[in-house]
Amino acid sequence: MKLTVNGEDHDLTVTTLAELLAALDFEGDWLATAVNGELVHRADRSAHSLSDRDRIEILSPMKGG
């Protein structure tokens, strides 16, 4: 299905958010995820089904003022 991940288009065969993270080689307890503007908690990623055209944001800690 077609997904937008951090602003980039992808065509992937995945069904859940956890599978998407694994497919794109994201790992680490420092990641935060959102789908279509809504936070998806770490514990809910395996149960969160993705749909065609979903927009996913994967954020991590960065320096800031």
Partner: peptide, 11 residues
């Protein structure tokens, strides 16, 4: 203070 930014794929 810290922030959050997009992580690169596989990064």
């Amino acid at each position: 203070t810290v922030s959050l930014r997009r992580e690169t794929a596989g990064g």
